[in-house]
């Protein structure tokens, strides 16, 4: 299979995924206890309002028709209005989701930047002091709850030392990035620990592989052997793990945004659930699910690029 073919096939696989996401999100609101209208309006809704909502949302129509309407709305970007904030859900998502995406992206980059070099050091000094120290430090990081770690960073680097703001999203992109540093580190550490552990094991596995010894037998420099022959092969499984961790990372973003008072999609989700703002919950769930499946696609493509046996 050629690379374009692989790409086409992988894109095609996205279609059933997206359909499944639509079905689940559609069912979500309809499976909530009570009828959807009172779910949207709350327990103490007036009958007249319930009827109005039923008509407005088409809840009185047959289910397949309802699904058709829902899909058409989603495709035209109409996700309904927030019941509590009285603004279009699409607009809310457009405001809040980019912040979360940025936070997650920063966290992902930080965790890779930490994990790759440290995994190398740990693997090459296997069972010696440096290895033990790196693994010990990450073990501590891994066993600490995200909110606790966030609070520590916030207290030390935010409040005590004053190096970073203690919360909020700042003014403009640069200031936003600055505000996201501590939260991103908070979010990054546990992923960094997981990636480091996986990559360390993979490097140890690969470093004595026949093809690495053969590469050494050609008289290549040690650094070239490590980067071209060891790292690339070791990364294959770590990239897969990275892709699978994106969901967890987004979950962590919810907690982190709460601790650092960042008005991102995570906070919005929490607020909407507690406020029973179902249109927002529905729209946001949809957006996050699409985001996650796109990330899966990206990591798959990255993996295929690293390992030609997958795509070719």
């Amino acid at each position: 299979m050629s690379t374009p073919e692989y790409l086409a096939r992988r894109l095609l696989q996205l279609v059933p995924t997206l359909i499944a996401i639509l079905v689940v999100v559609f069912a979500l609101v309809r499976l909530l206890p009570g009828d959807p209208a009172s779910a949207i309006l709350g327990d103490r809704a007036l009958d007249a309002d319930v009827e109005r909502i039923n008509r407005e949302y088409g809840f009185d129509r047959p289910i397949p028709v309802q699904f058709g309407i829902f899909v058409r709305q989603v495709l035209t970007g109409d996700l309904g209005d927030s019941t509590s904030l009285k603004v279009p859900v699409a607009q809310l998502i457009a405001e809040r989701l980019p912040i979360t995406m940025l936070l997650t992206l920063m966290a992902a980059l930080i965790s890779v930047a930490l994990a790759v070099p440290l995994a190398f050091v740990a693997a090459l000094c296997r069972d010696r002091l440096a290895d033990g120290m790196i693994r010990g430090a990450f073990q501590v990081g891994l066993s600490m709850p995200v909110f606790y770690l966030g609070l520590i960073l916030l207290t030390v680097f935010g409040a005590r030392l004053g190096w970073f703001p203690v919360g909020g999203d700042g003014d403009g992109l640069l200031d936003l990035l600055y505000h996201l540093v501590l939260p991103a580190i908070t979010l990054a550490l546990s992923l960094a620990a997981v990636l480091m552990r996986n990559l360390r094991a993979a490097i140890i596995d690969v470093v004595d592989a026949d093809y690495v010894t053969f590469a050494r037998s050609k008289g290549l420099r040690g650094s070239l052997v490590l980067l071209r022959h060891v790292l690339r092969n070791a990364l294959i499984s770590t990239v897969a793990l990275f892709g699978l961790s994106i969901g967890t990372l987004l979950g962590g973003a919810v907690v982190t945004e709460t601790v650092f008072a960042i008005p991102g999609a995570g906070r919005l989700m929490v607020d909407s659930i507690t406020g029973r703002d179902y249109p927002v919950v529905q729209g946001l769930t949809l957006a996050l699910a699409v985001l996650v499946s796109l990330t899966f696609l990206l990591t798959d493509l990255l993996q295929a690029w690293l390992d030609p046996r997958i795509a070719r």
Partner: peptide
């Protein structure tokens, strides 16, 4: 030694299936 390895003295391995790097052309 690096200059000798693969330079004046080369080696071919027992297992052609595993001695070439699978991810490089």
């Amino acid at each position: 030694l690096r200059r000798v390895r693969g330079g004046a003295i080369s080696m071919i391995f027992q297992e052609p299936m595993t001695a070439l790097n699978p991810v490089l052309p």
